[in-house]
């Protein structure tokens, strides 16, 4: 109830005007929505590509973060980024229990991911990508991304 009420408000907004490069693809229920994002500048890593995001909402959204992953299909690749695994799982603290806040929403997550891509120049996957993609059977929300800050 809580989630559906809030999501219906978000949906109403998403059906209106969205920031450039962000669009609603499908929202047939309150469990799973698809959004497309496109990097708006000329970053050669992402030029001419559209990336598809799948949002999955729990019944306690927005208290709990949605599960957000990139999905791959013939016309939507997984973007190359040091925080995006090749299976589409995203390592971003905004989507983590510690970084999520209920004031975030679908649009703000899309904007953040769009910005994350826009600012990137590294043509690489996260360290340990291959092993992770091979072995991971967990849903993104059950994975704990541990932070190792190299600079400190």
């Amino acid at each position: 109830m809580f989630a559906s009420k809030r999501l219906s408000k978000e949906l109403q907004k998403l059906q209106g005007t969205l920031p450039p490069g962000i669009s609603l693809i499908s929202a047939e229920n309150f469990e799973e929505w698809l959004m497309d994002i496109k990097v708006m500048d000329d970053n050669p890593l992402y030029r001419n590509e559209v990336y598809r995001l799948r949002f999955r909402f729990g019944s306690s959204y927005p208290i709990e973060a949605p599960e957000v992953t990139f999905v791959q299909d013939p016309s939507h690749p997984i973007p190359m980024h040091p925080h995006v695994y090749s299976n589409g799982i995203i390592c971003l603290d905004l989507l983590d229990t510690s970084g999520w806040s209920p004031v975030q929403n679908v649009e703000s997550v899309c904007v953040s991911l769009q910005s994350m891509l826009t600012g990137n120049s590294k043509n690489e996957r996260p360290p340990g990508n291959d092993a992770f993609v091979r072995t991971n059977r967990q849903r993104p929300r059950d994975i704990n991304f541990v932070f190792h800050d190299n600079k400190v």
Partner: peptide
């Protein structure tokens, strides 16, 4: 409330 941990060169291990 968005804070870009990844911009600090942080690396996360699943």
């Amino acid at each position: 409330s968005f804070s870009p941990t990844h911009t600090k060169g942080a690396e996360r291990v699943p």
